[in-house]
Simulated scan of single mutants.
Amino acid sequence: MRAFTLALFLATPLVMTATSAHANPFAAHTTGTEITQKQMDELEVGKATQDHVREKFGAPTRREQLGDTQVWYYDYAKIKHFGKNVQESTVFEFGKDNVLKVKSKGAAPAKTGNPFLGG
């Protein structure tokens, strides 16, 4: 019995590292699409189109039509066990020709409905 308990104790760290991030209780929880600054820099204003952005990041979290401008939002949240949580939104604005006019990154909307993110 002691040998079994010792084997179980020694095997537990191996099992924890072999499981997926979703099953790992120590992994941070993420939602949405994370877009890094490097990925944003790869999209050139005046050249990239809606098709380029969709191919790279998938469908946006939210869309808005403001006159001739279509705005795409990619929201991202990461709930960490330790340290500050991450909550951001990457925004792409397209003209009526579907070409990228403006790109920016900032804080996501305050009200998420998620109490762990404070809103």
Rank of each mutant, 00 (worst) to 15 (best):
K96G: 02
E93S: 15
A110I: 04
P109M: 04
A11G: 08
T5K: 10
V99F: 06
Q37I: 14
M16N: 09
K84I: 01
E93N: 12
A107V: 14
A21M: 07
T36M: 04
E64M: 10
A18G: 15
F116Q: 11
S89F: 02
V99N: 01
E44A: 12
D41G: 03
Q87R: 08
L43D: 03
T36Y: 01
G32H: 08
V53G: 03
G95D: 14
T5E: 12
T19G: 05
K47N: 01
P13S: 08
A27C: 07
A59Y: 11
T69K: 10
D75P: 03
Y74H: 07
H52Y: 13
N24E: 02
P115W: 09
A48Q: 02
D68N: 11
M1F: 12
H22E: 15
D41C: 02
Q70P: 00
A107E: 11
N24W: 08
A18S: 15
F9R: 05
A7V: 14
E44W: 07
A77G: 10
P115H: 09
K111H: 08
F116C: 04
T17D: 06
F116N: 12
E42K: 15
I35H: 10
A7C: 12
F94W: 09
P13H: 08
F9L: 15
V45M: 05
F4N: 10
P115D: 07
R63L: 10
V86W: 03
P25Q: 12
T19L: 15
L14M: 14
L117M: 03
T36A: 12
E93F: 10
E64P: 06
P109R: 10
K38P: 00
L10Q: 03
I35M: 11
F57C: 00
T36L: 05
A7Y: 09
E34A: 14
W72P: 11
T31D: 14
G67C: 02
D51M: 07
P60V: 05
K111W: 05
L66F: 10
Y73W: 10
G58W: 06
N98M: 04
K96N: 06
A18Q: 15
A28H: 07
G118P: 02
P25M: 11
M16V: 15
T30E: 15
H22W: 14
G83H: 04
K47C: 01
G113W: 07
A108D: 06
K101C: 01
